[in-house]
Write a protein that binds this DNA or RNA. Structure first.
Lengths: 163, 163
DNA sequence: CGGCATCCTGCGGGATACTG
DNA sequence: CAGTATCCCGCAGGATGCCG
């Protein structure tokens, strides 16, 4: 039963495994080493790929977009759908569900004639925007350099192996 | 020709399109609105999905891991392969190639009998670690809350729709 | 209106085998 | 040692259709 069932939480189950027992190499496995990271990572006791996991979460196609829209204030489903424009209702649903599950947004159903559902960022949701914005700022500040590096790289192998 | 060819740069081409002309909705499309983001995003002139793009880049399965390992110092190919352990040589190659292309790592070939190739983080590579570490720290600081929220959510729908 | 369920496709990414 | 080239599979994610 439930063949597809909208892929909500089956994938993020890995974090559970790491956080609970996980007898083997906790800190030494994934992001294990690295001075920079280590220094900042001996907080949670060595949960390493939890960070990669988080980045994959917010790094997916829609999460950040949705969060940023909600950052301005609560919105309803189709309102977001229209504003964002190119998102499918499936992905909006899935994204919102995952965000709700992680405690980043709240879902409030107002049972009117045509039912209204309002989504809003939680405190933690807003909180998340802070470091994310930091990375966003960095990206925008350095996008030119990255662009240049890419063009340079593409030139070289384009000229060499081009044909 | 080149049927698979290791997927290096074909995907990141989207950024180019955005940065150059792109007559349509630049800032208004993707992360367009959002006070928080907007405030911090009128830097680059409204490149919005460049940020999502960047997050997808570093949010992939291995980029962050590789970068963090290199953050400790230069390493050779199989050295990394051994240290990381569970990465395939294909993904190591692809990840390193992309990082090199973006200007985050340098690739130095020392033509000895068995050739040596050393990878090292560039200044920009190290620079990238700063905001990323910020997000990593936040994740580790809040992973417990996220965990709790998830467990809570799973309980409720587990008890309700449980069967 | 706000979903869930199904089909289908692309591509991320692992395993394997072959070169220089 | 450091890759490159293939094959193959799973899953993110788009399109469509149905339901309260």
């Amino acid at each position: 039963m439930k063949p597809d069932d909208l892929g909500v939480h089956p994938r993020t189950s890995s974090v559970h495994a790491v956080m609970r027992d996980d007898p083997g190499p906790t800190a030494e496995e994934c992001l294990g080493r690295t001075t920079h990271f280590r220094e900042d990572m001996r907080h949670g006791g060595g949960s390493c790929h939890a960070v990669s996991d988080m980045l994959s979460r917010i790094g997916d196609k829609w999460t950040l977009v949705v969060v940023s829209y909600l950052g301005e204030g609560p919105m309803r489903f189709n309102e977001m759908r229209r504003e964002i424009g190119n998102i499918s209702q499936k992905m909006l649903t899935v994204t919102l569900r995952n965000l709700e599950r992680d405690g980043f947004v709240t879902r409030t159903v107002t049972p009117t004639r045509p039912p209204q559902v309002e989504y809003a960022l939680t405190e933690m949701g807003h909180c998340l925007l802070v470091p994310v914005t930091g990375l966003a700022r960095w990206t925008l500040d350095n996008i030119a350099r990255i662009e240049a590096a890419r063009a340079d790289y593409d030139d070289r192998d384009g000229a060499a192996a081009g044909k």
